[in-house]
Design a protein around this nucleic acid. Structure first.
Lengths: 121, 121
DNA sequence: ATCGTAGTTTGACATACCTCGTACTACGAG
DNA sequence: CTCGTAGTACGAGGTATGTCAAACTACGAT
């Protein structure tokens, strides 16, 4: 993953990721949606703008930051964009099966409620 | 489970349990501890007082209510006590593997941080 | 009938959360 | 260099959260 800016972004080290923070980060529908989206994207990640959150830009920034500070996603600048990627490897090592269970749970809930989408996020 | 009081307690029906609410309920250390404790108890459940939360009684009441309203536990009066039980069956049907993943994640985190307890909760 | 135990209710307080608009910065393209 | 795009920072508003103390209710035991 090429970084084209040295603007620094604080990420918790893997061993500092706390379960409570992860669960809290995942407890918001907006953020859960981001995570679901990123789960279907390669390691490069996707820019914030790739996900239509239907909220203001500042709110969007806020949610991405919550996810990053909880250790759920990593963010890195590339050009004018900021690439977001799930920290799947770290999460799986720390909390095996958790992320998958949450994603499956969300998918199941969406199926039950019939709000499927063409693109599954 | 014998109920000895008709004081009513509202529980969400299984199909009304929302993933976001469950994750939020689980994102508090106090409540996570309650859930971990209840996971090691039979279907009868345990009274609130069985878990030493080290908070005031009103705070304790609050946390148990959050768990109940999210659909994580069921509560029923029995005599002067109020029995609390994990809604394991409902959660497992709705979100297979989620509860177990969370409990294992918490256990793993506790091991990493070395704050094991004689009784594992 | 009285007492103790278990839990509830109310009200309060400080903090955190989600949301927004506006003004701002960083970068690539022309 | 200028412009547009992507995202940030700041401040504000409203709501929710976690906490407590004090007064209360419900029940079993004596």
């Amino acid at each position: 993953m090429r970084v084209t800016s040295d603007r620094a972004l604080d990420h918790p080290r893997r061993e500092d990721i706390r379960l409570e923070a992860v669960l809290h980060a995942l407890s918001d529908p907006m953020r859960l949606r981001v995570v679901a989206f990123l789960s279907g994207v390669d390691d490069e990640g996707a820019p914030c703008s790739a996900i239509d959150l239907v909220v203001s830009k500042s709110t969007s920034t806020h949610h991405f930051r919550v996810l990053r500070e909880a250790g759920v996603i990593s963010q890195v600048y590339r050009g004018t964009a900021k690439m977001n990627a799930l920290r799947r490897r770290d999460l799986d090592e720390l909390f095996p099966g958790l992320l998958d269970a949450v994603l499956r749970a969300r998918a199941a809930q969406r199926r039950r409620e019939g709000d499927a989408e063409p693109v599954p996020f």
